[in-house]
Amino acid sequence: MTTAAQPFLSVDGLSVTFPTEDGRVQAVDGVSFSVERGKTLAIVGESGSGKSVTAQAIMGLLDRRLSVVTGHAWLAGRDIVAMSDDEVRHERGSSMAMIFQDPMSSLHPFYRIGAQLSEAVLVHQKVSKHAAREQALDMLNRVGIPDPKTRIDNYPHQLSGGMRQRVMIAMALINSPSLLIADEPTTALDVTVQAQILELIGTLQQEYDTAVVMITHDLGIVADIADNVAVMYGGRIVESGSVDEIFYHPQMPYTLGLLASVPRLDQVRAERLDPIPGNPPSPISLPPGCVFQPRCAYFDRVAGHACQTVRPELLDIGRGHRVRCHLDSGQRDQVASDVLAALAGGGV
């Protein structure tokens, strides 16, 4: 049993590289964060920023022959990175579980959902097939599948996308894991269904006291369910902190850029949005200094071309808020207040 103050998952300097034909792909570089039971950490970033690879590294789902994982991921005090394949396998699906983006393709099309659920029980618990099926039925009930007695014998293709994601959640939580990693679980779903699924995850999180890592690119989802936020860019965490810190005191130019790019439902921005110029970096050829420098509007405020040559460190600026940027605190405040003022003033 971990106490509330002690994080259930604590990731420390996690790096992942893929040796490929085009060169070494540094997908994740020195990522650190932690999550307590009952709390939600949102990892937010654009596609290719390393969110899924981070999740798969924690779950031990990366093929060791095709990737190099370094650093630590402490799960209740034990380092997953240092475990053998078999040891991680025992943790997967029992103490930590994962749900994926596309519920359409994440269930095996040839097996009934009951069989797929019971299978998850049977690998980790010494129970009879009948008992496993009872657990599956109970879990389907909990995730709000109507008429579970019939649905348990359905094949995935007989269910809608939202229902399949519920089945995935049931499968992930059936062994009451303490950690749930959700990798963009609602990206493929409609907003109304997304709301149902997010609510369900929240309810079950309370019930099981689960630590949740929610991976998303949607700042709305972050605002809705997260306690803490880590913003990823080019394989690194560039800013992290409590949800209030990130939304109301953002400091890093990339985070500010993201906030300025999103169209808002509750207010009309200026006729033109203020997007971040350029494209996200390719992990094969990351810029030598700050990874965001080619798209940053403020790098010339930093003396001595540091942004082009020196990797900024993740700096703790208090209140649990950390920022990876060469700007000094005065400059950051200036930049932040400029951007936020422009946003607030843009309404029609």
Partner: peptide, 18 residues
């Protein structure tokens, strides 16, 4: 159903669950 990218505003909205 669309979550607002603004935690405080999001917490105090009308919520209709279909």
């Amino acid at each position: 159903a669309v979550p607002l990218p603004d935690p405080r505003a999001q917490a105090s909205r009308e919520q209709i669950r279909l």
